[in-house]
Amino acid sequence: MKMLQEILKMHHSRNLASQELFYCCTVLLCRTIVAPCGVVIAWTKFAKSESPTKILNFLERVFDKEESHPAYICIDKACVVLRSAISNSWNRIWEKTTRFIVDTYHYKNHSKDDVLCQEWCNPAPTDGSAPNLVVAACEQFNSWLGGFESILKLMTPQNFNWFLHSMIIYHSKYVIQKKKQHTNAKKEKDSETSEEEDVDADVEG
């Protein structure tokens, strides 16, 4: 967890993506919280199955202070989690700060007759009250990590924890490095464009 916290600090200090939105994704019987840029913020395992209560407990451990709450949390079963939260921790923890949204990839499979889901968990409500959220970063991470599924299934719990944690750290560092390279390349391009404009101005003068 300490190393992941360090990665999170790097992520925020370099302003790689907005802190207002996080994705909660499933890999095997694990849940990960992924920032829009692809950096994995946290992960946990669920014994045998996951439930809305387990997901809420996980979110409350990660976002343990109100000032750390994102404005939006995308979850494939956000409406189910929201129902559980309303019965337990919604007023106390999430109501003032956060909206649970079903990601666009899974939302198409949710019932159109579910009023709570349609009104409160819609990723693109017609009234424009929330952005149209996509989950490219999360799905890309799931796809990448899914390549190790056959190996992970054969591991002992201790090896599973070590391997998954190591790969998440590797993935997050890789994402940060790629973002840094992209930012530097953009700065260099902008600088070259500015120099060319200065030369043109001198010639015209």
Results as ranks from 00 to 15, higher is better:
residue 52 P to M: 05
residue 137 A to W: 15
residue 4 L to G: 06
residue 137 A to L: 05
residue 134 V to Y: 15
residue 97 T to Q: 06
residue 71 A to C: 11
residue 36 P to Q: 07
residue 138 C to E: 07
residue 102 V to D: 00
residue 194 S to F: 11
residue 51 S to F: 07
residue 176 I to P: 04
residue 55 I to F: 13
residue 129 S to D: 08
residue 176 I to L: 14
residue 69 H to K: 10
residue 194 S to R: 13
residue 49 S to C: 09
residue 176 I to E: 11
residue 140 Q to G: 09
residue 169 I to C: 12
residue 87 S to G: 06
residue 156 T to H: 10
residue 180 K to E: 10
residue 178 K to R: 15
residue 123 P to H: 14
residue 101 I to M: 15
residue 137 A to R: 09
residue 163 F to L: 15
residue 152 L to A: 09
residue 2 K to L: 11
residue 3 M to Y: 05
residue 198 D to H: 04
residue 57 N to K: 03
residue 23 Y to H: 12
residue 33 I to Y: 13
residue 119 E to P: 00
residue 20 E to Q: 12
residue 195 E to Q: 15
residue 109 N to W: 01
residue 202 D to M: 12
residue 94 W to K: 11
residue 112 K to F: 01
residue 43 W to I: 00
residue 13 S to I: 08
residue 53 T to F: 13
residue 16 L to T: 12
residue 83 R to Y: 14
residue 115 V to R: 03
residue 48 K to C: 11
residue 169 I to S: 02
residue 33 I to N: 04
residue 61 R to S: 14
residue 63 F to Y: 15
residue 79 C to K: 04
residue 13 S to C: 06
residue 86 I to C: 02
residue 83 R to I: 06
residue 109 N to K: 12
residue 1 M to S: 07
residue 197 E to F: 12
residue 149 E to F: 01
residue 190 D to Y: 05
residue 145 L to E: 11
residue 146 G to R: 05
residue 191 S to I: 07
